[in-house]
């Protein structure tokens, strides 16, 4: 139905504040002209043909900030001087009462927290707790439990000599490398297990079948009682014997003979006494075409390669001997390497 006109009234006035006759039916109302409080917005629409519709919309004007009165309640009885605070602002924000004086709060916090901090930082009880929980290694047991155990010195000395062959993987001071660390290794507690691991091998560790029972006992005793370990002896005793004779021959045959002992000490642990290595882990030397090349062979042993450690600690003479031994054994026939050649490569 077409609209004839729209009259807009405010509150109960008889005169409309605006009459709209055509679209757009829009008007602007400045609420600042109205007092804060309840008002009524009335829209009376006249349709062509005599129809009439009235809409009433109550609303609230709030242009001025509220004033909150503190210090005087409704109906309160008062006498004498009266202190009244008038707070003007956003009525939505609650007023936070100041419960404690800030200075007092600060002093109390410093005293209480400082006391607690001092008790833990400076008091003797913390020291005791720390000593209980984390004792220094020297104070109690080393890496054993039995404390310092008397071990046959001769056996230890022998074990140390044999261990030189193990040092390639386990480190000269048992710190580990390709193989696990032995210093502080709690698995060493079980002597029987260690004996089995040495004689039969385990995982990447090859069986040391070239060692006699006495040798195994000696080296087990050594690793169980060195570098801070103190797991005690193994049981069997034994006397020390020279690590290996040192023939002074200059020719290839005697060099190779000299190298045999060194090979057993330094290389056989991984490459095996028969030079066949362990497939997939330690390469075979028997029939290995790579070591035909003198330079490759010398530099590999002297400087190490991949998982293989360097053997620079051996003298030129010893290196020449062990290299020669490897080149003329197990069917190899690659010729000798002289001391001078090693010296030149160093």
């Amino acid at each position: 139905m077409p609209i004839e006109r729209i009259e807009v009234y405010l509150n109960d006035s008889a005169e409309p504040i605006q009459v709209l006759r055509q679209p757009p039916f829009k008007l602007k109302l400045d609420t600042r002209q109205l007092p804060d409080g309840e008002h009524l917005f009335r829209v009376v629409t006249h349709f062509k043909g005599g129809g009439l519709q009235e809409q009433r919309i109550p609303f609230k004007v709030n242009n001025l900030p509220d004033v909150m009165v503190q210090g005087l309640d409704e109906g309160a009885e008062v006498h004498g001087d009266l202190e009244v605070a008038l707070r003007v602002g956003d009525p939505d924000i609650p007023v936070q009462p100041q419960r404690f004086p800030t200075a007092l709060l600060t002093v109390a916090a410093v005293l209480i927290l400082g006391g607690i901090w001092g008790f833990f930082a400076l008091g003797p009880s913390s020291q005791k707790i720390i000593e209980e929980v984390a004792p220094p290694p020297g104070q109690t047991e080393a890496h054993g439990g039995e404390g310092a155990v008397a071990v046959d010195e001769a056996l230890l000395a022998k074990g140390k000599t044999i261990y030189a062959a193990c040092a390639g993987c386990h480190g000269a001071n048992g710190e580990g490398g390709f193989g696990p660390a032995l210093a502080g290794n709690q698995n060493l507690k079980d002597a029987q297990m260690i004996l089995t691991v040495i004689t039969k091998g385990r995982g990447n560790m090859p069986a040391q079948s070239q060692l006699s029972e006495e040798d195994v006992t000696a080296v087990t005793t050594y690793i169980r009682n060195s570098w801070g370990n103190s797991f005690g002896g193994v049981g069997a005793g034994g006397e020390s014997k020279p690590a290996g004779e040192a023939p002074q021959a200059a020719d290839a045959a005697s060099l190779a003979k000299e190298g045999e002992g060194l090979y057993a000490q330094n290389c056989a642990g991984c490459h095996q006494p028969d030079g066949k290595g362990m497939p997939g882990t330690f390469p075979a030397l028997a029939g290995n075409q790579n070591i035909k090349d003198k330079t490759f062979h010398i530099s590999t042993v002297l400087k190490g390669r991949g998982a293989m450690p360097a053997f620079a600690r051996l003298s030129d003479r010893e290196l020449a001997a062990v290299l020669t031994y490897e080149r003329v054994s197990w069917g190899n026939d690659y010729g000798a390497i002289s001391e001078a050649e090693v010296k030149a490569a160093r």
Binding site: I116, F119, F120, A121, L122, S126
Partner: peptide, 9 residues
């Protein structure tokens, strides 16, 4: 606070 003290110790 206590743990701070203990840590310093």
């Amino acid at each position: 606070t206590a743990m701070g003290g203990f840590y310093v110790r």
